[in-house]
């Protein structure tokens, strides 16, 4: 079935905010999420395709409401639970 990430040709996202946006990260946690992704992938806990799959599998409304790096964080958590590295709910304990 169609997934929310597959947006090529989709109408309604509006004008592009073409600002130059020179800062790669807008908060420290964003850089740390990218670091977590790189570190866990390098350790073989998941691969890039599994990571993309985890992002795309988000419910569409949640995907669209989440910021870019929020999606990354959610995907990292999803995969860590799926692989048994953390328990479901452990992050909220």
């Amino acid at each position: 079935m169609a997934r929310i990430n597959d947006v090529g040709g989709f109408e309604g996202f509006g004008a592009i905010d073409t600002g130059d946006d020179p800062e790669p990260f807008h908060a420290d946690w964003e850089a740390r999420v990218v670091g977590l992704f790189n570190a866990l992938r390098a350790q073989g806990i998941f691969n890039t395709n599994e990571f993309r799959d985890a992002i795309e599998s988000m419910p569409p409304a949640e995907y669209l409401a989440a910021s870019y790096y929020e999606r990354w964080f959610r995907a990292v958590c999803t995969l860590l639970e799926r692989k048994g590295v953390i328990e479901p709910g452990e992050l909220d304990a």
Binding site: M1, A2, D6, G8, N49, E56
Partner: peptide
């Protein structure tokens, strides 16, 4: 084909 899993062939193509 519209596969029931991740794919890298976008719908538009």
């Amino acid at each position: 084909h519209d596969p029931p899993h991740h794919t890298r062939l976008p719908r538009y193509a």
